[in-house]
Design a protein around this nucleic acid. Structure first.
Lengths: 339, 339
DNA sequence: CCTGGAAATCGAAACGTTTCAACTCCAAGA
DNA sequence: TCTTGGAGTTGAAACGTTTCGATTTCCAGG
């Protein structure tokens, strides 16, 4: 194994000089610096992470708590994860993977044993039982999602409330008076997952304001469940002309099923989704949608942690403004006569 | 921070004794051991991972290279990941997350800097460019998937060749003479992903042997692509009575589209899938399937690494026998007269 | 009662970094 | 000419474990 000592000898300088070349924490002449760098390169030196961590009490590792429940949309989760990993590398950090199932004690273990410097927690629920434990940790923590009481913790997320409002506003502006909502699986609402609840409340609140009727149907990720939801929503007496979908698992089926039931999109019924842009664009009928900015959220989460590690950064809640892309699946509501 | 010294003092023993209590590498009297354990517990001591790694040259961390391409089935990937994480914890190890995009140098960096002790690589291609670099690493490596030349590397995977054979045998035994195959996205075959190619070759080889005609259609994960594939496969002159599906993304749509085209499953057409059991069972018509044993593969991968770290374990290729579950979506082929 | 050896415990030397205090130059200001 | 001070460099002390060799303790056998 090549150590910093070997590099120092090879470059004809002291060990500490090599260290300073690497960290840049002290001025080093360009000639020395170059000589050292060349030695590092020639010898293929990689600083030992353990020794580094021990001496500096910094591991350069972020712990990431990922939910692996099946009622969540894994592709979306993965987009968060990959953007976080990429951004972490950008800041010369690695990512340690924890699964949500393991709970808060695992996070505590990882921090207490100095395996990681900071924590990102995904899929935070409104009154998440892990919150107190996370507050105790005195390392930077960023939540993806916003709990009921974020005091003392940093959060970043799409502004789901405003997103919900946007979908309704969009449809109401087009003249729709009665709309359906196909939501995430019931279990998601039961656990009071922050984002799902907030999206829905944005919808209902705005609907009330705009005097739009909204029929809410959480929907399990199965054909049967979707079919039942659509049966209920498409009863003629409801006069539904617009549909908001927040459920990636059944999104494709929604479009197919509407077609099968001779409801044309958008002529008979307008559809707007909350989902990643790529998914919205890939449907049989490309869908107008509000994007889930997974990449951006991941980047911001890591940046917040980095500032936290640098000692700046008070706890902060950061909500990203929704962005609605019209792909033509939403149009002016058909007049009553047409129906 | 609580260190081993504090524990030693509190328990009235030497530092090394505490260490031996923890590691069990030397005999310690039960009384001492209990006293030490109690101190550890009372003080809330967690051994510093960096110091430990430095002294023992063992990090107790596994590096896991996860593919995050979107043409792969993320839910399946996640099942691998979560079983790996769980099993790693079972062996007191943590998991460091690397994404495939970063390539082999990232793996090298992680090992060279002693951030991890061993590596699991998912989604290995037939002639994966990372292979040589992985062989150079002198730490245990386990591939999930089997490359063309696995020499010197351990692998574990479902036996996709036999799985392909099984699907055909199953259908042929039921009297089907002409079957369709809806495969993974074309890109997957183009990259010569081991598993997809092997599954397909198992199918075609057995089909030849059993004198069954098979019509092959790789299929992108979109409604349009699926629709085109089905158009082609359902031309009456082909006389297809059985369908093998290896594409989780469009699996649900396959069933719905067949129904829409007035093909009853299984009366008019038998369908068998290669996918996780839960997915097969969740379809509008529960599907006969060959399971993708993600959990088992994950567990085995970790166990192989552990044996490798213990110094046992020569490189080994481990193929898991396919398991076919009949859920009633495959029946005797309709006689020609019926069609 | 002594002896030998196993069982239990201890002390100190690694492990490979970072970082602090200190030291050497050398140039600029007085 | 003598200070002063900053830039560049160094040596050595941490950092918190593990582990090796040595030492003590204990007990059975003679």
């Amino acid at each position: 194994m090549i150590t910093i000592k070997d590099v120092a000898k090879h470059a004809g300088v002291s060990v500490s000089t090599v260290s300073y070349v690497l960290s840049g924490k002290r001025p080093i002449s360009t000639t020395t610096s170059q000589r050292v760098r060349r030695s590092i390169h020639e010898l293929g030196f990689h600083p030992n992470a353990g020794a580094r961590a021990l001496a500096s009490s910094r591991t350069n590792v972020l712990a990431l708590v990922v939910p692996l429940r099946t009622d969540l949309n894994l592709p979306v989760i993965m987009r968060f994860v990959s953007s976080i990993v990429a951004e972490a590398r950008e800041h010369d950090h690695d990512v340690l993977l924890l699964t949500k199932e393991s709970g808060a004690d695992e996070v505590h273990r990882v921090i207490a044993s100095a395996r990681a410097d900071a924590v990102i927690v995904m899929d935070v629920e409104a009154r998440d039982p892990r919150l107190p434990a996370l507050r105790e940790l005195d390392v930077p923590v960023v939540l993806i999602g916003v709990p009921a009481d974020p005091a003392g913790l940093s959060c970043v997320d799409l502004d789901f409330t405003t997103s919900g409002a946007s979908t309704v506003t969009h449809l109401a502006d087009l003249g729709h008076r009665s709309i359906g909502f196909i939501g995430s699986p019931p279990s998601v609402y039961e656990r009071k997952t922050g984002y799902a609840t907030r999206f829905l409340s944005g919808i209902t609140k705005t609907a009330r304001k705009r005097r739009v009727t909204v029929h809410v149907h959480p929907c399990a990720p199965s054909y049967t469940a979707l079919s039942a939801s659509l049966d209920a929503l498409l009863r003629p007496e409801l006069g539904i002309t617009g549909l908001v979908v927040h459920n990636e698992a059944v999104l494709a089926d929604v479009v197919l099923e509407l077609q099968r039931r001779d409801k044309r999109v958008p002529e008979d019924i307008s559809v707007i989704a909350l989902c990643p842009d790529t998914l919205a664009a890939a449907q049989a009928v490309p869908l107008t949608s509000i994007a889930i900015p997974a990449d951006e959220v991941g980047v911001i989460a890591v940046e917040m942690l980095m500032r936290g590690l640098a000692g700046e950064q008070p706890a902060e809640v950061r909500l990203l403004a929704p962005q609605l892309t019209d792909r033509g699946s939403t149009v002016t509501a058909p007049s009553t006569a047409d129906r």
